[in-house]
Design a binder for these strands. Sequence first.
DNA 1: TATGAATGAGGCTTCATTCAT
DNA 2: TATGAATGAAGCCTCATTCAT
Lengths: 188, 188, 188, 188
Amino acid sequence: MSASTHNEKIEAIFAVAFRLFGTRGFSETKMSDIAEEAGIAKGTIYLYFSSKEELFTAMTKREFTRFVEQLIDMLMNTTGFQERLEIVARHHLSYYFKLKQYTRTFFHAQDNDRFLMEALRTFMFNYTREVAMMLEQCGVEHAELHAKSFIGILDVFKMDILFDNSFSIEDLEQRIAFAVKLFRFGCQ
Amino acid sequence: MSASTHNEKIEAIFAVAFRLFGTRGFSETKMSDIAEEAGIAKGTIYLYFSSKEELFTAMTKREFTRFVEQLIDMLMNTTGFQERLEIVARHHLSYYFKLKQYTRTFFHAQDNDRFLMEALRTFMFNYTREVAMMLEQCGVEHAELHAKSFIGILDVFKMDILFDNSFSIEDLEQRIAFAVKLFRFGCQ
Amino acid sequence: MSASTHNEKIEAIFAVAFRLFGTRGFSETKMSDIAEEAGIAKGTIYLYFSSKEELFTAMTKREFTRFVEQLIDMLMNTTGFQERLEIVARHHLSYYFKLKQYTRTFFHAQDNDRFLMEALRTFMFNYTREVAMMLEQCGVEHAELHAKSFIGILDVFKMDILFDNSFSIEDLEQRIAFAVKLFRFGCQ
Amino acid sequence: MSASTHNEKIEAIFAVAFRLFGTRGFSETKMSDIAEEAGIAKGTIYLYFSSKEELFTAMTKREFTRFVEQLIDMLMNTTGFQERLEIVARHHLSYYFKLKQYTRTFFHAQDNDRFLMEALRTFMFNYTREVAMMLEQCGVEHAELHAKSFIGILDVFKMDILFDNSFSIEDLEQRIAFAVKLFRFGCQ
DNA sequence: TATGAATGAGGCTTCATTCAT
DNA sequence: TATGAATGAAGCCTCATTCAT
């Protein structure tokens, strides 16, 4: 039923928190629901996280960190501008695609929370830095602004993924190709 | 302090709601605060809006609508691809710049509601459509995808504006120029 | 639409109040509903009744008074013990029968209200007195206790009327006959 | 002050609720008052009852059930028509007499709810059934109508008990004797 | 460590009543 | 007299957090 070791328990809490915060949002998610779905008692969560906000922030930070680390791994094994751009694009869009069923608010400023804003800032900083480094290696000037822009292009397609119920893998690949092409050569 | 006519009162409520929801987020904004700052009684809000959620949604919808209408106006009086792109970019970024002091959550999926998600969807649809129409008139293919992408590039710079306390008018203009150039000619 | 003279207006208010208080009960009936259904403004009610409680009490008192006055009229034109008992019984039960569709709480201690309790007391006093006087004229001893008992027998049948959806005029007449017979000769 | 076990706590809540709802009525009784007088926190009540209405209904149902069960017990150990009628009468009237200080609304349709009406219906059904069974055993015809009538006679005396501050034990016994005699032999 | 019953601050909302017109 | 927009006191209920076991 419930996870037994310290880490397993934290993982279980994170997993449920991710799902519930993602689907319902911060305020509408109850600590008691998280506890119940994680198979532990309400009080137990407080052994690991001092408050609801801390749990939310910790979970979000971990998610952000993972996201960037995975990106770094993938970029490490690749050369070629086009390929690398595609990797960034695919990683970004796949994230939303995979989690579509229960993602709604992640990577977005929440209803609340100075803490999350800080986490989001750090995330953007790290994410941008990695993409910028990659761009720099590939000889692109104004790497940071370009990195942000590329991320922006990708992020806006999140709307399509989340709102369009018939959005398919093929659509995803099409968006990737489109984003990379636009980024490299402009709209003309 | 308080406005007298029906519409003035609604405007007053909207104005305060916009500011408070924007700075504090939905859950952390109290109806009593809105009432107090609007110079009316708590109960009075309920003469115009049936619930906190309805007020929030109505206010957001109005904001979205205004944003798009203003854009339409400005595009109407302009020709030239470069100029029009600059107008879109400036409108988008200026919005955040002007409201920097109390904007945080707008144009973002909230912690709550189905209603706002629907409003956001409509907004994105309208905003994208206007930009896409303009692009089409200027001979750009895949106008919709391009429109979204351009919006994405602009929207990501919102982060810079909101997070960077020293962000200046000059920075703003630089971002505008950068976004337009990238969009037109790519990163190279 | 709305009644124009002073008395017509009061009558209109009474009529609506009777219906709404009767169907919904005191707390669940809003002054605004009464005003609306009476075709007048909320504030207007306060020109005639100083509070919700006063309206309720006044309306109830009037209803009680009417009930007893009608009974007095009918008894006045009759002689004969059996006939008179039947008149009381028919008057009592017909009242509930006629108002079945919107009677629920009348003649009963309310959820609230010292005022109504007082009105109810007066009503029971007057109602009992009239029945007792009649019994006395007919030579019945312990007229007051007997009067109350007879009223009690009748009042319990109210349950049948209110709860039994198929309760008919024939059932009503049967109850009348039964009540009178029991009262006169006992259960044997 | 506060009870410790689950059941003790519920009993404590019931006891206070019975007293307060009985004296003040439903609407005028505050959940916070019940909590305070029960020596627990407001929120604790909601661990056992999902709403004020539910508490009220549950308490009333329990009271009804008890009333009938006690009657059944007492009838079980008695034979003789006269004695049994006296038992019913004494049980009914003693109930009001004992609880005089804080009974006002029980056994009466409340200002509110469908729920209570249903409970009242069930109560009347069960109460009537027990009395009717007893009457049948004693050879009385039309047992149900007779049972209701007897209950009605008794119930009307509730008024005397509640309204007459000098109502004594002797008065009570007199009413019992009167009710039984009337019921058996009629008014003559 | 783990539990979950208990807490109680706090917010949304209702609605009787007022009063300027 | 009549209106109805405005008021604001008051109460139900939620839920993050605590703590005795």
